[in-house]
Structures are given as C-alpha cells and as structure tokens.
Design a protein around this nucleic acid. Structure first.
Length: 135
DNA sequence: ATTGAGCGT
C-alpha cells in the first residue's frame, strides 16, 4: 500500500526526485514551495486518520494551534487530507522537514504550506468566518 | 462505507 501511495503521490514528491538536470532553471517546477505559512496542507492521509492523530503526530514539532481532517459535512467521512496550523513558522518548517514523505497510519503523507483559503472578503451580513489561513 | 487527486463545513 505504501507503493500505491507513492505512485499516487501528489507534487510533494517531486522535490525528492528533483535530480533532473532540466529542473533547475530552464524548466522550473510548476509548483515550487508555496509561500511559507504557519498553516500546512497535509495530503495522503489514511481515511481512518483522525484529527487527534494528526494533532498528536504534528505536535512533536511545535505548538499546534489547529489540526483538522477534511471530511464531508454530514457523513463525516474523511476526504483523506487535512490541515495543521502551527503557532510559529519555524515549527511549520520543522514539521514539513520531519513529516513530509513519512508514514502515518500506514500511508505516505505529504506536508506542504497551505494556500490561503479565501481572499479578504467584505464583512457583510451573513458571513460565517472560518479563516484558518491567516497568521 | 478504507483506499485515493487534491487545498478546508
């Protein structure tokens, strides 16, 4: 299964295979490291991995402010990826170095900086503000 | 209701 996960690996693995002479400056990777953030995107998770497991695993690298597995709203069924937010950028960096490409619940996971979830929006009438992408 | 690309109810 680790093999399957490795094959299904998202672009997180590309830097592990960045030995191509063409991937230096002539052919830059489409998605280099996202801009550093305290917020991390974690993919490749087992569908049985929970928020607790995520939080517990990543708290080894620093103070985890928020850890969440993305799942369907009603069914609660995991989508297989999640987000971890640290108190500091250094902790986030250490978590990437320490957990990217490693195993969790039998699956190879990939850790990278998360994209900001939503642009600054008008503080209008019915705004349920979930904003984890801010530092 | 375990099994797969991806960025959140």
């Amino acid at each position: 299964m680790a093999l399957r996960a490795a094959v299904a690996a998202p672009r997180g693995l590309r830097r592990l295979f960045s030995t191509s002479p063409f991937s230096s400056s002539l052919n830059p990777p489409q998605r280099p490291q996202a801009e550093p953030s305290t917020n991390l995107f974690v993919s490749g998770l087992s569908k049985r991995t929970t928020d607790e497991t995520l939080r517990d695993t990543f708290s080894a690298f620093g103070e985890v402010v928020h850890a969440k597995i993305v799942k369907h709203r009603e069914s609660g069924y995991s989508k297989g990826f999640g987000f971890v937010k640290y108190a500091t950028l250094e902790a986030a960096g250490k978590a990437i170095e320490g957990m990217d490409g490693k195993f969790l619940d039998g699956w190879v996971i990939f850790v990278e900086y998360a994209k900001p979830r939503q642009p600054p929006t008008l503080p209008s009438q019915n705004n349920t503000n979930f904003q984890y992408g801010r530092q």
